[in-house]
Structures are given as structure tokens and as C-alpha cells.
Design a protein around this nucleic acid. Sequence first.
RNA 1: GGUGCGGUAGCCAAGUGGUAAGGCAGCGGUCUGCAAAACCGCUAUUCGCGAGUUCGAUUCUCGCCCGCACCUCCA
Length: 474
Amino acid sequence: MPPSQPEFRLFNTMTRSVEPFAPTDGDTVRIYSCGPTVYNPAHLGNFRTFLFADLMRRALRLRGWKVRQVMNLTDVDDKIIRRAQEQGKTIREVTEPVTKVFHEDRAYLRIEPAEVYPKATDYIPQMIVLVERLIARGVAYQAEDNSVYFAIDRFPGYGRLSRLDTREVRSGARVAQDDYSKENAQDFALWKSAKPEDEASGAAWDSPWGRGRPGWHLECSAMAIDLLGETLDIHCGGIDLIFPHHEDEIAQSEAATGATFSRFWCHGAFLLTDGSKMAKRLGNVTTVQGMREAQISAAAVRHFVFNTHYRKELNLSEEALEASMNAVRRVGDFADRLATATGGTTELAVAADSAVAEVEAALFDDLNAPNALAGLFTFITRANAELDKRGSDTESLERARAAFARINGVLDIVPERQIDDPELAAWVEERLAGRRAARERRDFGEADRIRAELAERGITIEDTSAGTKWKRSR
RNA sequence: GGUGCGGUAGCCAAGUGGUAAGGCAGCGGUCUGCAAAACCGCUAUUCGCGAGUUCGAUUCUCGCCCGCACCUCCA
């Protein structure tokens, strides 16, 4: 990399340290991020992780690299089968509508689409090949129940990512006794033999080991290798996936290919609600749909999430969310002002340049979004002060616009414009005309009465030199 | 029991071996008919507690207290 290019640093869970990062080929960053299990709409906790991946891909692109991101959709697993059984449906009938909702929610939060969203059920042949390779290498075995397991004691590196040695795993508090038979309690299933409910819900495929379905970990390895190659640049996901999911992915991938599965492992911390983990099984979830109904803008959600570093737990509270809603309003007002301004000052350009430098430095330093936000807000204050001077330098204004666009291109926190409601607009304009007339004849009592009337309908007005502006307050 | 993270102003939250970013809220001022928005100023002598290292610690070390998460399928 040319010395002029800034260094990009990322925390690597494998080494537990922040390391310089660059894509293997110097051009395109190949990312695999663990996506949702589509049996239920994802909640905001899930989306914090997806927002983290969004931040990462945008920051990498800001740095000048291309990104090829693969996010899997797990469309076959225990919970999906159970759901299908409960509802008398096939797994596909369960997963398709949920996948649709996922993308709607994703789009609402302005999470850029990944380049590929592979579904596990579309990669069964690749998974079977992977299992065959593992059996050929002697690290996997078929048990009495026809399921195929990975023997973790035949993979020396097992436990490196999670830093759990196998002895500790063994004495762990929760060693599940599941319905499958295996040699060692810690061995994990690569291929699960089909049960009646699997067949009934369309979750069974032919394989050299009989009818069955893939294990969860296997899906990711097979799809990642197929779509991105044997060594990924970055593999990311929620912190809870470190063990066992990512540990198992490493084991089966590296045992099969002999290559390092991923150069970087990046994990996002949890979103808590009322001090404890947000989880479907705890019933304390906030959905994106719920936030839309509460008229919480995507911009506010993004601000809320990015205001805390991705490796630190974040507690969802109404107060914090409200602070973000207010903060983002300031950003939106500034965006409007930049768009309608006619000129700036030399100082404006100076502020723009330093803002870009500051924000980039923050983002390239292990995705420090809180610092990037600080840089943006500092810029907004400085730029507003300069714009107050009503300068006429169009070049510096353009510089400021470009800087803002560049920064917001990553954070994306300008609130959406209110949906146009022609009827409401006409009504408001009518009131404003009346108020203008009242003000002209200095009948301020009437003017204030109209303002209060508008406020009751949630309309905030602002008298400017260019006339009266109005907007919905929420 | 093991592993890991965190405790910074009313709230959210960065950060550094050299004396505390940013946001929200609040207060005072400018502007405004009054507001709103914007701007200016103020708001932690202090970073969970105790000890140690150091010329100097919120930042390093040790101990303690509190909170959270992970330890087989949960982002």
C-alpha cells in the first residue's frame, strides 16, 4: 500500500488485538458475515450486528477498497423445523416470508445489501462434499444413528478462537444431552440423520450417509468456501458466535482445506434491554417493525447504534433513543442548510477538510464510529457558524457539501424527509398564509394562535429570511 | 467453576502515562415581535473503591465491590 494511504486497523478476535488490515489481493475485501436464522423476524439486537457489518463495509469502501460481502440466510435448522411442524408447513413456507421481512427491515435501517445472500438449502451438494473431505481426512465419522460428527480431538487447533481448552468445555455447566449419539460429548454434528419431522417439513436430503440435513456450522463453511474461497479476509458476526459456531467453522474448514479459514475474526457486542440480553427466548425484543410504528427514524437508530463502539455492550433505553432522535434532527437541519446555502467562507473549507480527516481516522481505527460522530458534530457546529456569516465563496461551500456527503456516506444518519401528504401541506400552507398576513399587520396574537394550532397538529415552524419553513416535529 | 467485557458529568458515550472528545438534557447570552433554528458562553478539579509503580495514573500493576455476557446450535 502506498505510504500516503492511511492504515486501516481492526480488532481480531483470534489474536485479541487491533491489527493493520488490508485485503489479500489489495483490491477487494472478502467478508463473510453470519446472517439471520429466518424463523422469526430479527430483532434490534440482531440488527445491531448487521449494522456493524454495514459500518464495516462502508468504512472499507471509504478507504478505497471494493467489498464482496456474503451473508448467509440459515433456512434449515431445529427451530425452523419445529416452527414448521407447529404450523403444519414446510420449512420453505416458514422461511420465505421471514426472509422477506428481513430484507424490508434491513432496507428500513439503510443497511446496504450484501453482494450475496446464500440460502443454506441451496448449498447442500457443497456441504456434502465438505463432509466427504472431512471423512476422507479422518476427522469426521458416522455414528450409529447415521449422523456424521466432527471429532474435535482430531483437530489440534480446536478452541484457539474462543480460548477454551477442551477440558474446560467438558466440565462446562451445560453439556447438552441431545438426541444424537456421538463418540464424544463435544463433537458436533456435520450431518444430522433425518427424523420424521425433518422429512415432513421438507428438511431432508439424500446423502452418502442416508437421508439427513446439514448441521448449522457446516452451512457457513461450505457457503463461505464456495463463494469466497478457502481463506476469507474477514469473518464477522455477533460475539456469541465465537463459541461454538465460529470455533466449529474453523475446525471443519481448516481440517478440510488445510488453509487458514479467515485472516480476521470480528465480533460485535450485544444489545441489551433493561440491562439484560435481548433475545427471542427472553421475550424482551424490540423489532424494527415496532420502531417504525413508534416513528423512530432509521437515522436515529443508526445514530444510537453507532454512538457506542461496536465492541462494547449497548443498552437500549427510551432516553438514549430519544437523545439520538434529537441529535439526528440537528444533522438533518444541517443537511438542509448545506443544500440551500448559496456560499461559504474559506474557514468553511478548512473545517470541511479537517472533519473528513478526523472522521476517516476514527473509522479506520477499528471502526470507531463514536469518534466519527464526534468529528461530524464538530464540523456541523463550525460549519453552521461559518454559514451564519453569509459568505459568497461557492468553492468552499462545495467542499463542505462534499465533506458532508463523504462522512454521511458511511454513517447515513440524515432523517428521511417526511412523507409528502398533499392534504396536510395544503392545510399548513393555508395557515401560514393567514399567519403571514397577521404578522404583516402586526397582529401577533393571531400569529401566535396559528402557530399553536399548527403545533397541535405536530407542525413546527421556523421563520427565516427566506420565509417560513415548516416540518413535522416527529 | 472456566472465559471475556464493562463501571467516565442528570442521561448516552469517546479517550489518553502529562492532567477529561462528541451528543442529549439544563442554564445564561446573541438573533427574533415572540418563538424556532443557528451561534457564543457555562455545566466532571475529576474518570467504581483501596493500595502500589511513577516526577506525574482516569489511563500501568495488585486487591476489592458492582453489573453484563459466553461456556453446543442465541447476533
